[in-house]
């Protein structure tokens, strides 16, 4: 199992480094490229956790759609994507304090809440996780209401984006 820990350490360092570059890089498109590296690192972490469906979804949605959307947005809003903004805004101390608070909160949560050091139960090898997820999504005792609500939410997003972005 040492090998997988080694891989995890590599992935974790890569993801953190990429995320750091995203917030410090002044070139917006470069930052977007590094964001993709960070998102891919997150997907790799999911693979290491054997949450393969989530890993693939991470790539399809975040890299396939959201990253493209972000790059499009940069091209759309900035006539010259290479013209660098003046760097960090004056709000960076607030952001630093907030993220530090979030980090310490999560660490505190991890250390105090019981059960975080317990290993996850071994899953039944025969269990098809994706099929089980599908059954849960549409069963009335499961998540059918959130499932349909997600559809309505997506519809609202669709209509909203057209109303905002589309001018005749």
């Amino acid at each position: 199992m040492n090998f997988s820990i080694l891989i995890f350490l590599f992935v974790a360092v890569l993801t953190t480094f990429a995320a750091l570059v995203v917030v410090t890089n002044k070139n917006l498109v470069s930052a977007a490229m590094w964001l993709i590296v960070a998102l891919f690192g997150a997907a790799l972490t999911f693979v290491l956790l054997e949450a393969t469906y989530i890993a693939v979804v991470q790539v399809v949605v975040y890299i396939g759609a959201i990253a493209v959307l972000i790059v499009f947005t940069i091209m759309l809003t900035r006539r010259s994507a290479e013209k660098e903004p003046s760097g960090a805004t004056k709000q960076w101390p607030i952001a630093a304090v907030l993220s530090l608070a979030l980090f310490s909160g999560l660490t505190y949560f991890y250390l105090t809440v019981p059960g975080t050091d317990r290993l996850a139960p071994v899953l039944d090898k025969e269990l098809n996780m994706v099929s089980a997820l599908g059954q849960l999504l549409v069963s009335p005792s499961g998540y059918v209401l959130p499932f349909e609500l997600a559809s309505v939410l997506l519809l609202a997003a669709l209509i909203g984006s057209i109303v905002v972005a589309w001018r005749k």
Binding site: V68, L69, L158, S161, I162, A165
Partner: peptide, 10 residues
């Protein structure tokens, strides 16, 4: 292009 990307996301 932006609208296509948004719709694609949805």
């Amino acid at each position: 292009y932006y609208i296509y990307a948004l719709l694609f996301l949805v």
